[in-house]
Write a protein that binds this DNA or RNA. Structure first.
Length: 561
RNA sequence: GGCCCGUUGGUCAAGUGGUUAAGACUCCGCCCUCUCACGGCGGCAUCAUGGGUUCGAAUCCCGUACGGGUCACCA
């Protein structure tokens, strides 16, 4: 078992003189999870390079659901292994944004610091652990260093890899890779020592004994059975600054943190072979994998493309500004995650979405298009299920930050705002007027005198006639009755002025009439709300009160001239 | 270019060898109705393609096309 070759031992000492522990000793000193059977441990492991976008909320919610629905643990690990790309404060804003959408962590990096026994949860603080395993791999002859001088390194840093890939000659690149791989594999401890003395930098590479022609059967929890070629690439484990690459960090961290289910985007599928090899070389138990489909958008030429950070609507902060309630967004994400969610929702309108039995197997394998229309629809339904208070609070909360003037009106009389949002709420056929908080002003702004528009009368009616009618109404109406009593009054008023009280009769034979009761209601509506559409007029006037209604009628009458 | 993954209406999709190929969104029409919103009814429109296997294929196999991903000391 411990039959190491002397040159490998020598190499290990040369490269990692500071490492004294063995993996076994390390693991002995680490805590172990003690979770019930079936409890899943998942993580969200972003690199702190910017804001959370839709494509990030996706896997985060999957991990959260999986863990919490099984009584397990969901933790946040920050993959800050690339100092060059790191953005100041990204981790904190990410935590806040996810919390806003109800994605909360049990463990890991939090706003108030690190929580949990399996830390550190910043990869940049875990160098010690990576080096212990790295040294072990060198001892076993499964890893070797390749050296570059500082100058060569600077040159490499200058290359824009993305650009290079576009114009690359793939055959040439592959041949060069193989050649370099073979040359460096033969490095002796003596050569390494000379490089180290010269101050050269090294990266540690895995000695990959794989054959790309051979396929490994693999089962992904989302995608089912897959065939992946064995890894034959001596990929980098440790960069020249001693910090691990994603691949190595993934293996070490998810092993030590006892992750049971790795949830990540399907862009990782091509590197899965590397991870299988690493786990096997390190003797780690392989976690279950879920590679979830990317969210797509339509580009100019009509092709689907990965939704990127730059895209409009990708930044989760945008949704707050645009007035989408977090509950609406999570609801929409759930419909994308599991297509039977909508059916479940119809059957369980009052339940929290966390009660839905989420299933990885029901996730789509092909990337779906982000659909704003659908989001709006889901939002309307979600808001329709909320209480008047929730809606009123939601609108106010939004307006406070993004429409201060509107907020001033709302907050001056929150009770009235709640009364307004109570219109048509509840019951079997609730109104669905709002898909976003920002729709509120258009919908109910007219309640506030400042937003009341001047009536624009229809040309086909005589202004004097309208004024006369409104005047008659003003002198004789009462709100001291119920809706149907009020409408009976409107009908009688209509008839008195030569308007048909029955719209059906009017449609059948309009000739004897000036118009119908619908037109009369229209005059009143325009006078009271300044608009052609509004919720039920009687309710609107009741909320406004007799005094304000009277005043508006007077204003409208004077606008008839 | 190599490798991997995918392809059911405009969008999201159900579907696992026999279905009139669900449902939701969008759009259109009608009904309800004092307007709007809601609700009800109806309509448009789908198995990428060519070969097999089978009594029978959206479903299984092979090829083709198309789309996506990936091939860094980025994650």
């Amino acid at each position: 078992m411990c039959e190491y070759r002397p040159e490998d031992l020598r190499m290990a000492e040369l490269l990692f003189p500071q490492v004294t522990k063995t993996p076994a000793e390390l693991e002995e000193s680490r805590p172990k999870r003690n979770l019930p059977e079936g409890a899943k441990v998942t993580r969200f492991a972003p690199s702190p390079t910017g804001f959370v976008h839709f494509g990030g909320l996706f896997p985060a919610m999957v991990g959260e659901r999986l863990a919490h629905q099984s009584g397990g643990v969901f933790y946040l690990r920050i993959e800050d292994t690339d100092a060059k790309r790191e953005v100041e404060g990204a981790a904190q804003s990410l935590i806040r944004t996810l919390a806003y959408y109800g994605v909360n962590f049990d463990e890991g990096v939090t706003e108030s610091g690190e929580v949990g026994d399996f830390g550190p949860y910043y990869q940049s603080k875990r160098a010690e652990y990576y080096h212990i395993y790295a040294k072990q791999l060198v001892k076993e002859g499964k890893a070797y260093p390749t050296f570059t001088t500082k100058e060569e390194q600077e040159e490499l840093d200058r290359v824009d890899k993305k650009q290079e890939n576009k114009t690359k000659d793939w055959h040439e690149a592959e041949a060069a890779r193989k050649e370099a791989q073979n040359a460096w594999r033969a490095i002796t401890p003596e050569e390494a020592e000379a490089h180290l003395k010269a101050g050269d930098l090294f990266v540690l590479r895995l000695r990959a004994e794989g054959d790309a022609e051979k396929k490994i059967p693999f089962t992904d929890l989302v995608r089912g059975k897959l065939e992946i070629p064995e890894n034959d690439e001596d990929f980098v484990l440790l960069k020249s600054d001693g910090i691990p690459t994603y691949h190595f960090a993934h293996a070490v961290d998810d092993h030590l943190m006892e992750t049971t289910h790795v949830v990540r985007g399907e862009e990782w599928l091509p590197s899965l072979a590397k991870h299988l090899m690493l786990f096997s070389y390190l003797g780690f138990k392989l976690p279950k994998y879920m590679h979830i489909a990317q969210l797509m958008k339509l580009d100019e030429s009509g092709n689907k493309k990965k939704l990127s950070k730059r895209d409009m609507g990708a930044n989760m902060e945008d949704y707050r500004r645009l007035g989408y309630a977090p509950a609406c967004v999570t609801e929409y994400v759930m419909t994308l995650l599991n297509s039977n969610f909508e059916e479940w929702r119809t059957a369980n309108p009052e339940k929290d979405y966390t009660e839905f039995p989420f299933s990885p197997k029901k996730m789509s394998v092909s990337g779906c298009l982000f659909d704003l229309d659908k989001l709006s629809d889901v939002s309307k339904n979600t808001i329709a299920r909320m209480s008047a208070k929730e809606v009123s609070d939601g609108v106010m909360d939004w307006a406070k930050d993004f429409a201060p003037e509107f907020y001033a009106h709302l907050s001056a009389n929150p009770a009235m705002s709640e009364e307004i949002f109570a219109i048509g709420r509840g019951g079997k056929k609730p109104r669905k007027d709002l898909s976003r908080w920002s729709d509120a002003k258009d919908y109910m702004g007219f309640f506030y005198r400042q937003y009341l528009e001047k009536p624009v009368w229809e040309e086909k009616f005589d202004r004097a006639e309208i004024a006369d009618l409104l005047n008659d109404y003003l002198q004789n109406y009462t709100l001291d009755c119920d809706n149907s009593g009020w409408f009976d009054f409107v009908k009688s008023l209509a008839e008195k002025h030569g308007f048909c009280p029955d719209t059906k009769a009017y449609k059948a034979d309009p000739a004897p009439w000036k118009g119908s009761v619908a037109d009369v209601s229209g005059f009143l509506r325009l006078a009271i709300t300044g608009k052609n559409n509004s919720p039920d007029l009687f309710t609107v006037m009741s909320i406004l009160g007799k005094e304000e209604s009277d005043e508006r009628l007077r204003l409208a009458i004077s606008a008839c001239n």
